[in-house]
């Protein structure tokens, strides 16, 4: 995909200029060509995930996955990505309870820094916590999700999935449905997809879809049917169980009745509309099983595969400077 040399167009710079950032803390602030560059790099690994060049690319490098919040899928995805590139991957699962007070978080950052990792992947329950740690360490930091803020590799893997299935992102209408308010996935997708030229819609009950989403360029709907009308991509978000029982919505079954993705509702979208979900799914709440399992419509398992490729690309790109890659050192 990226084998041909890039033209000397200022919008497609080469080497370090293609992605002149030390960390990946969010998709906010990234230029369209920077996002495209990461997607192009990820595209390589989709097909060549197991070739020998990749196996030794990060040989001798140490990557620490520091997860201050429970995660199975994202942690596994980062671990596999690092190992496929030949890095030594260490997982540090820190129970949120034991690291709650402030100095401890900074202290943990200092400790991680003293380990001389070559990259640190961090997940934390508080918005901005990853940026706080990134400020204290000498190596690249990848945000694997911080509070309600961003989950940039999820945004990238969703963009890659869409681009591969639809051939483009520019001009597509993407409907993101469900709990927008509490979703870092929604924020990264709204920002990333809008930067790449998509028309983003957000939809869900008013308690979960804040008006401020419009400031990020999204059109806001409180009837999910209106958002699905003519959409190219339908992205359902996971509804956290603690928000289902009257706190934000009356009940899971009411949510399903009014906002869940059913075959009837999906029929409002384009006939070839793609269905996505960041997982894990609440089947029968935000999405019907029949849709989730329909290989023609659902890209849900493909998203997981793209996740590994995107994380390989991010680990590769962010460590190029310290690996002395030509044009990056």
């Amino acid at each position: 995909m990226t084998s041909s040399p890039r033209p000397l167009d200022p919008r497609t710079p080469n080497g370090h200029a293609a992605f002149p950032h030390r960390h990946l803390l969010g998709l906010a602030g990234l230029q369209p060509w920077e996002l495209s560059f990461l997607l192009d790099e990820a595209e390589r690994w989709v097909d060549q995930a197991r070739d020998d060049a990749g196996r030794s690319l990060l040989a001798g490098l140490t990557i620490i996955n520091a997860f201050f919040e429970n995660s199975t899928r994202t942690l596994l995805s980062f671990e596999i990505a690092g190992k496929r590139l030949g890095a030594d991957v260490v997982n540090m699962a820190v129970a949120q309870s034991s690291v709650k007070k402030g100095e401890t978080l900074i202290d943990t950052a200092m400790t991680l820094n003293a380990m001389r990792a070559d990259a640190i992947v961090i997940r934390h329950a508080s918005s901005g916590a990853v940026a706080l740690i990134a400020d204290k360490v000498d190596c690249p930091v990848l945000n694997a999700g911080d509070g309600l803020h961003e989950h940039p590799t999820q945004g990238l893997l969703d963009a890659l999935t869409i681009r591969r299935r639809k051939g483009r992102i520019d001009g597509l209408t993407v409907a993101i449905c469900g709990d927008i308010r509490h979703s870092r996935v929604a924020r990264s997708n709204m920002i990333g997809l809008a930067t790449l030229g998509a028309k983003v819609r957000v939809a869900g009950p008013p308690t979960l879809v804040p008006r401020e989403a419009e400031a990020l360029g999204a059109d806001r709907f409180t009837r999910v049917e209106d958002a699905l009308d003519g959409a190219d991509v339908v992205m359902m978000l996971r509804l956290q169980s603690e928000r289902m029982d009257g706190a934000m919505i009356p009940s899971p079954r009411e949510f399903h009745a009014l906002y869940g993705l059913t075959a009837e509702r999906l029929a409002l979208a384009k006939p070839d509309a793609l269905v996505m979900h960041p997982g894990p799914m609440n089947r029968g709440v935000e999405i019907d099983s029949a849709i989730a399992d329909d290989p023609e419509r659902s890209a849900i398992t493909e998203q997981v595969a793209m996740g590994v490729a995107v994380r390989m690309a991010c680990l590769d790109v962010l460590t190029r400077q310290r690996r002395g890659v030509e044009g990056w050192a």
Binding site: E103, S126, G128
Partner: peptide, 12 residues
């Protein structure tokens, strides 16, 4: 002091 402020924003 830092124990109250060198924290993620919502925890400070």
């Amino acid at each position: 002091g830092p124990e109250d402020k060198r924290l993620p924003f919502a925890d400070a």
